[in-house]
């Protein structure tokens, strides 16, 4: 955790809750509410990468969107550069938005096929009314992400998936953001291409010093890029801390099971590992289990887990985890 008195974090999320209302089934009157994110808190320091991992339905993408206020949180606060985003006026939010950008998973859907690459990259500058020669800026951005100046006149269909993702990154960089939410930015790419885009993220951060919230289900990519990691399950953070500690000494049974389920690309290692086989699937977020949300799949669950919801506690290895029976 950052010492907030001396060095305030760039981003601070406290008690974030996001509920979605669903139409009731079979025309009934009772409204169904899905709590996609429940009481999530974390901080991101300047120049830091926070990895947000979890399986489908864990709420990781919803957290990313709430941070940018692309969707409105139900409750909780998101503080960016010391300002509470829920209490800034339209004009100020507009200014803050320049500093917070997002890169999406699908490099095909996130670029307008009818706009030239140059126009797509310049669009944030136009929207924000940035004066000056955008052409030069576009060229420098293209070069920054490993593309060439003459690519600006071409259209998205002329590019491969990896190149398109670089275009999306160039667009996100146009306004010199302090924070970029990367939502599964390499999941749609083949591994040989993925490696180049991951290196690009590392290079850009070393050069420009921005922070990343890196959302992904691929745990090995997150391990490679993140300084700290938050493991989510059914809308809650189960464990959060320095990446090395979380990966090497997981204290939450879910983290441990998740890590053991990821196949290691080395047959000798892979075939000798002991694996924790979790039963069943992630329960429905419409009706999450009482107490600890992971207890229905946990081999350590006791009566206590069903009645008392565990809170995040600091462990000896330096990370926080929410479990009544943490791993040593």
């Amino acid at each position: 955790m950052t010492d907030s008195s001396k060095n305030p974090p760039l981003l601070s999320v406290q008690g974030l809750v996001k509920e979605f209302h669903m139409r009731s089934q079979r025309g009934g009157r009772r409204k169904r509410v899905v709590q996609a994110v429940t009481n999530v808190s974390f901080e991101v320091a300047r120049g830091e990468t926070l990895g947000l991992v979890g399986e489908s339905g864990s709420g990781k993408t919803t957290v990313g969107r709430c941070v940018l206020r692309l969707i409105e949180p139900t409750s909780g606060t998101v503080t960016f550069e010391g300002r509470d985003l829920a209490h800034v006026d339209v004009e100020e939010m507009r200014n803050l938005r320049r500093k917070m950008q997002i890169v999406f998973q699908d490099p095909y859907a996130s670029l307008d096929p009818k706009m030239t690459v140059g126009a797509s990259i310049a669009e944030p500058l136009v929207v924000q009314g940035v004066p000056g020669n955008h052409e030069e800026k576009v060229v420098s951005l293209l070069e920054l992400v490993g593309l060439a100046a003459d690519h600006a006149r071409r259209f998205p269909h002329e590019f491969s998936g990896g190149q398109r993702q670089r275009i999306g990154v160039a667009r996100a960089l146009a306004l010199d953001p302090a924070l970029i939410v990367l939502d599964e930015p390499v999941s749609a790419l083949d591994v040989s291409i993925q490696a180049g885009v991951v290196n690009l993220f590392a290079d850009l951060q070393a050069r420009l010093g921005m922070s990343y919230v890196f959302i992904a289900h691929d745990l090995s990519v997150v391990r490679h890029i993140a300084d700290r990691v938050a493991v989510m399950y059914l809308g809650k953070i189960m464990e959060i801390g320095p990446a090395e500690q979380v990966y090497e000494h997981p204290t939450h049974p879910y983290t441990k099971a998740l890590l053991s389920a990821v196949p290691v690309p080395n047959p000798r290692v892979e075939r000798q590992r002991s694996r924790i086989m979790l039963e069943g699937d992630v329960p429905s977020p419409v009706n999450p289990p009482s107490g600890c949300r992971f207890r229905t799949r946990c081999w350590k669950a006791t009566e206590l887990c069903a009645t008392v919801e565990p809170v995040l506690e600091m462990r000896a290895t330096g990370q926080l985890s929410a479990c009544h029976h943490p791993e040593a």
């Binding site: 291409i193 993925q194 180049g196």
Partner: peptide, 30 residues
């Protein structure tokens, strides 16, 4: 995995993120 004899196989394995590897090695081009 131990002795890949085609450069593509080698490139594919080298591009995977692994513990202790500081920088990934993508395959150039597409």
């Amino acid at each position: 995995f131990d002795a890949p004899s085609h450069p593509y196989t080698r490139g594919l394995l080298a591009s995977l993120p692994q513990a202790g590897v500081e920088r990934l090695s993508p395959i150039a081009g597409f």
